[in-house]
Nucleic acid binder design. Structure first.
Lengths: 220, 220
DNA sequence: CCGTTCTGTTATGAATTGATTATATCAGGT
DNA sequence: ACCTGATATAATCAATTCATAACAGAACGG
């Protein structure tokens, strides 16, 4: 399954966009023409299309319509500055959203994230080889699913959400366990240990979950 | 610590916005007037302000200015459609970003996420070849990481934060160790010594951690 | 009801830290 | 030049902190 199909004839822009999306954890395919896009749509399952209107050959409007005939994959239209607003209005009915060139990549990413959240009930967090889906409570490491227990998942999520920060042990403990316990120190330590077994190549020399002596841990 | 302070007199909109932000994991406080906002800012540590310009009583411009007088907390201005653009330009200088009503919540969230990412992912202190990241608890000297112990890190941080000042030994000791001890003199001296080994080219002739005879040390 | 998984606890050993001590060196006054 | 008190340095050692394995109770699902 491909998450996002980008349809964009300018290869430079397309590749750049690809890179950004991959960095955010999506799997992406880039089509450089309407024909290629339609062919790809027929053969693969796609969760979202980012569609540039200005295309050589079949234009974007037609591509949008044809995709809609097949299924209701969400579509985000990318267009140059709109001249005739009514034309756009007609288009927007077919698409889920649109954005004008030149656009801020953060804003496009926000729109995409919003659609995924609403449509697919998933809210991904990506950090290198590690993907965490908060809503589905699933974590993947190098594209294979980790079997984490509840506590392990919460602990990992907390660490990743505070990536780079040195976190105090008792702070972590209060966040994950939500209360004070007597031998919290050791309990946390043990859980960290178990997490390391699952996400570190060499748990003896952890690269991701670093220990900060006398303080706690830092994820990087 | 509160992540985001929302200043919005329309309680319905404010509450809605609150909910969205909380869903995204922020801790939020809602102020319904400029007075309340300013009072709250003075009493709490806040990381970002979302400020509506149209307020009863003190207007948003004034709130923005007053907050800026206190500290440099990032501010996002929310305004109705701008009539006089020059007025807005003047305002934007004080704020980090602005957005017009009615706005797409995803876009506001993207702006917020962007600011948090840029502003808070680390908190560096730079002094020549020396970089100290308080949050990550990492110090670098000439672009290579120093392996400092907890006490060494705190000691170095204290020295750099008070760069140029001659610091009394017992003052330093109380700050780092937090209490009085019997042979504090020597303990501190030894730690200073260890630090010098790590950040001075020639620990015998220290250029950074100078000793101030009969008083203590001065960092420069 | 039983087996499995999860979670907290404890024990042990290893690694690190940091206080202490002892000795050497230095600055400044006489 | 000498003395005194302050600081530097090296080495030692005890306390702290962390990693790891093993165990037992709790929660869970069939």
């Amino acid at each position: 399954m491909i998450d996002i199909l980008i349809v964009e004839d300018n290869k430079e822009i397309g590749t750049l966009l690809c890179d950004f999306l991959k960095e955010d954890g999506y799997t992406v395919f880039l089509a450089v023409s309407g024909e290629e896009a339609l062919e790809y749509v027929n053969k693969h399952t796609i969760r979202l299309v980012v569609l540039d209107i200005m295309l050589p050959g079949i234009d974007g409007f037609t591509v949008c319509r044809k995709i809609r005939e097949e299924n209701n994959t969400p579509i985000i239209i990318v267009s140059a500055k709109v001249e005739k607003e009514d034309k756009m209005n007609g288009l927007v009915l077919g698409a889920d959203d649109y954005i004008e060139k030149p656009y801020d990549i953060d804003i496009l990413l926000a729109k995409i994230r919003g659609i995924f959240k609403r449509r697919y009930e998933s809210d991904m967090m990506v950090d290198g080889n590690l993907k965490i889906d908060k809503i589905r409570r699933i974590a993947c490491f190098k594209d294979s699913e980790l079997t984490l227990t509840s506590k392990e998942f919460e602990l990992l999520l907390l660490l990743v959400e505070n990536k780079g920060k040195a976190l105090k042990k008792d702070w972590i403990f209060n966040k994950v366990w939500g209360f004070d316990s007597f031998s919290e120190q050791q309990t946390l330590t043990v859980h960290i240990q178990w997490l390391r077994q699952k996400i570190e190549e060499d748990p003896k020399n952890p690269l991701r979950i670093k220990t900060v002596w006398g303080v706690g841990y830092r994820f990087e």
